[in-house]
Design a protein around this nucleic acid. Sequence first.
DNA 1: AATGAATGAGCCTTCATTCAT
DNA 2: CATGAATGAAGGCTCATTCAT
Lengths: 210, 210, 210, 210
Amino acid sequence: MDKSEESKIRILDSASKVFAEKGYSGARMDEIAGKAHVNKALIYYYFKSKEAILKELYQKFFRESTDLLLRFVERGGFSEDAEENKRLFEAEYAGYLEANGDILKILVMESLKGDEKDTPLFRLVDLEGSEHDTRIQGIEERVKISEKERQRMVVTEFFTGVMPFVTYIVLKDKWCRHFKMSERALKECFDYAMQHTHEQYHANRKGKKR
Amino acid sequence: MDKSEESKIRILDSASKVFAEKGYSGARMDEIAGKAHVNKALIYYYFKSKEAILKELYQKFFRESTDLLLRFVERGGFSEDAEENKRLFEAEYAGYLEANGDILKILVMESLKGDEKDTPLFRLVDLEGSEHDTRIQGIEERVKISEKERQRMVVTEFFTGVMPFVTYIVLKDKWCRHFKMSERALKECFDYAMQHTHEQYHANRKGKKR
Amino acid sequence: MDKSEESKIRILDSASKVFAEKGYSGARMDEIAGKAHVNKALIYYYFKSKEAILKELYQKFFRESTDLLLRFVERGGFSEDAEENKRLFEAEYAGYLEANGDILKILVMESLKGDEKDTPLFRLVDLEGSEHDTRIQGIEERVKISEKERQRMVVTEFFTGVMPFVTYIVLKDKWCRHFKMSERALKECFDYAMQHTHEQYHANRKGKKR
Amino acid sequence: MDKSEESKIRILDSASKVFAEKGYSGARMDEIAGKAHVNKALIYYYFKSKEAILKELYQKFFRESTDLLLRFVERGGFSEDAEENKRLFEAEYAGYLEANGDILKILVMESLKGDEKDTPLFRLVDLEGSEHDTRIQGIEERVKISEKERQRMVVTEFFTGVMPFVTYIVLKDKWCRHFKMSERALKECFDYAMQHTHEQYHANRKGKKR
DNA sequence: AATGAATGAGCCTTCATTCAT
DNA sequence: CATGAATGAAGGCTCATTCAT
């Protein structure tokens, strides 16, 4: 990797931090440049505008997370074995999301804004609507279910699976500080919570099928 | 209600809309004034600053929501009867939150920002830490449980009960538009989801006790 | 004096204090109203504008000070007896100026500003140019001197008599605080200074004449 | 001098003019920018705030004037020879002050304001209290006098020497216009005034010593 | 690829002044 | 006389963006 690319990466890293900390509107190009140790004008050498940085962060995130999801599926995710599913998910996907908590923060904050804009958060469960990849399409087609059943599944997955996990990631630092819990203890509690709610739901579904 | 107070209320209403739509940093005082049909300078007659408006919105929300929660408890909430609990919750509390989706949006967005600031979102489950009311203290004291058990309960309540509900409220419009669902259909799905996850967890806890 | 007039006087008093403390431009109508314990809008019942207050303060000051100066002259000021002059001056005039230090401050500050505006400070030695009173004219006409001699006298009077005295009045509080002197000690020093400079000059003039 | 510094200097020059003409509070950043032929925002590239400009003007002035005063002393100022003193003073110091009449105006105007703020005008005679330079300390230590005598000297120097000179500088333009005198004629009169008052006092002091 | 300087547009806030009662 | 509410016009300051080198 040449020196040029390194500057660009430092800018992206810095931007994701500042966006996450101040929100997109509250973030200042000065601070992004400062944290990236580059001249403010250099940012405009690599990016057309502040918004272009955001868009590139999104793209990178959805490209990578889609890849990971695919790998997860390829290696047997969404299988019958709930235990195996969970192990795979944690190995392949969860770590990446945790490492990208800043992007998730931005995603959530920006998704709540406005009316006309799209809602990037939905891409996490609306892979079909995603323009980034067509490889994913086969996944859901494997299962034949009614439209109503499908809606229920997606809604349940999003609001009781994805969102709890996302909010856990973006709030865990604040939670630990506020409630004076160790990160380990919180993780233990959160696992407990998911096990007794969302994962229980999946287990029950499996049970019924047989 | 005299004319004076009406202007102030119009400003608060307008501010909550604009904050929710653009985020706090992205909101412009011009737009708040415009939507409230008042002169921009009048805002500063009633409020010291932009931030003071936000603080007053928070105060009003937490005052009212705490009152409602208390009423919910007084009328038998948190009782053994899960059905009754749900009915009461929906009658007393859920409607208020749904009607204050804008404040919830602001709450979520601002709670993700920064490091040093407090996290208003936590006040929804950390009533003890709330400076607003001391009447609430008796609620949790009724049940004798270990600290670890209490932590698990709070974490579960927050991440798999409160946050799904909050995200449902703040995202339902966007969800309906994006996935072309009616609000009614989404509500049906969401109820289904909660029933099979979070409420199931409560039901199981009740079952075990006996 | 009816209640109405009292409000007006309180406004003028308050204005002179605030103008002196913050300067004319830096003074805010709010603070003037506050210090006068009247509603801000009431000021506009008595005065056309902020500037009108200033003008009225000037008028009042020059009216009163001219009256005092006339009385000073009528009772024998500008006489041959330097001792008597000084005694009279202190009795009739100095006290008034000291009591109106705020106006003097305003006078000095505003006199330094701008180019086009007049210089109210000069009215202290340019009684002829004053529009306020015609009684004064006789004073200087009593003495026949050359134009050049008159200019020297006025310049000397202003820069080594009036201005030291004016600056003494407007700075004495600050001087005492800064140099940790008692007001009494400063006055003693200042009297010494004037005696050995400006008053010495008058004494010498008297001496020469004979 | 590079182009960058030139803009900054133009801003400082412009600011001193506008501050002097309108007073600090009355000065508008727009006008400062306009007179300096720079974009208004550029001012904030070089200075943190309006007040920071004022502070930098003060610093520059006191740094330079202290240097000049030191040079004056090193070359024999404050010596026994009154004539020589005056010649040196005019050559080394007076010119600088006359050239910086705008700063002096600001100094006087701001020194009269407020209660809590310091009084920059006093720095002209309170070199010991000045944080800018320690080289000056030796000057007054050379002469052994009583505290009371020292106070008298400082008071006399300030109110009958410095202030007449300062007021002469800051008012001479207005004086000439108001009284229709040439600058030359006024200077002649003012020299006459100082000779027969303040300088006479110094001469007498010298005389007594012998 | 990098940077110090510069800028136009806009934002929050202030303030003298006026209105309505 | 008196006042709470309202307003137009700035004013200080910020910020994303661009220029020149």
